[in-house]
Amino acid sequence: MASSPHFSIERIKRTEPFSMAFDHMHDAYEIYYLLSGERYYYIDNRLYALQAGDLIFIHKHGLHRTTNKGDASHERILINFDEAFITPSLDMQETWELLAQQHFLLRPGERERAAILSMLEALLGENDRNEPFRNIYRRSLLVQLLVYIRRLHNVRYVPIVPEGSEKQQRVYAIIEHIEAHFAEKLTLDQLSSAFFISSTYLCKIFRQTTGFTVVEYIRYVRIRQAQQYLKETRWPVTRIAEQAGFDSIAHFGRVFRQMTGRSPLQYRKQFLRENDADEAAT
């Protein structure tokens, strides 16, 4: 059987400093709305400075975390959901059209912020009540919110430039190199030589900017690519391990399980079950 549809929403106000120590990712989409205060938000190792009223949409499997900026006090609303939660209200084409956009940050105007907040408060209210047809109503409210966000994105979206000190720009370049060459043999010495910095300094600025060690990030990129191969091909696991840059099937299997909680074959089987269930529902 496919996994149960997932939906969660929470509103949290903090008055003490709070920073996530490490980036994380999950199998759900995320909507983050900052009600008050300021935050730094890392998305795939790009750093954005958020102000009250900003909204971020995070595609599933996107690396992200938030950290302090300015006054520690802030309040936010966070939604996590998967496709299975909204598909009963839509056909598959409509679902993918709503969710196709990769991560983006919106800075709505005053009128748009009021409309977004009204929808979020309706979702929070319905989530706190155990009324008949609760899931149907939450689903319809979420779809309304997603449509509104996509319309704003299509009509008024202006890319917000990530923060970029010289140190951060150097790390971004290293990340792009890793993303482009993940299937090749990558070592710390090779990277430090390619970017004309010492390995010690490279490790320091990479960890400060991303929350990852260099080795951890290389593994993340390779596992993310392996997940795509498992879903999109029928290649044997040995070939997937090789194409993703792992030098042994045992190492690949161990790292994959550590990062996903499943073996590569379990991951593929679950994806096929869920995909078959979605097709049967259309």
Rank of each mutant, 00 (worst) to 15 (best):
M1S: 13
P5G: 02
R11W: 06
K13I: 03
F18E: 11
S19Q: 01
H26G: 09
E30R: 06
Y33R: 01
Y40R: 09
R46F: 12
Y48L: 01
L50I: 01
L50Y: 03
A52N: 01
H59N: 14
G62C: 10
G70M: 09
E75S: 15
F81L: 10
A84I: 02
M92Q: 14
L106N: 11
R107H: 14
R113K: 09
R113F: 03
E121S: 07
E121I: 10
R129V: 00
L142C: 11
L145P: 05
I149K: 01
N154E: 15
P159H: 12
P162R: 02
A173F: 03
H177K: 14
E179G: 00
A180Y: 10
H181L: 00
A183W: 13
A183I: 04
A194C: 06
F195H: 12
S199M: 04
T200L: 11
Q208P: 07
T209H: 06
T210H: 00
T213A: 11
V215K: 04
Q227T: 04
L230V: 04
R239P: 01
Q243F: 12
D247R: 12
D247E: 13
I249P: 10
G261C: 11
L265N: 12
Q266I: 03
R268H: 12
K269M: 14
D276A: 15
A277D: 08
A277R: 05
E279G: 11
